[in-house]
Amino acid sequence: MTRQEIEQEVKNVFHREFEIENPDMDADLRETYEFDSIDAIELLLAIENFLSTEISQEEKKQAINIRTINQICDYIEKIAKQRNLFSPA
């Protein structure tokens, strides 16, 4: 899995679940797209599916205050690296 694949999958999730196309990678999700905590949980579950791995309670708590899509990608990359799923492009 590469950073590019991660970014593409996050964009797919945004399109599929939140009907947002070409989201701004650095925009504040709460302010720009009116994201709430339930949306954040939805995103976490989509990430679990994408990585085919269970995310622990502690890891989920770390993710809940993420603000931007770039931060989401960083978070996925970190988890993927911890589980040896990440390969640099």
């Binding site: 709430d36 954040a40 708590k61």
Partner: peptide, 11 residues
């Protein structure tokens, strides 16, 4: 309430 469904409390 939004306050009760925020951050780690939500999890």
């Amino acid at each position: 309430g939004a306050r009760d469904m925020l951050g780690p409390a939500m999890i």
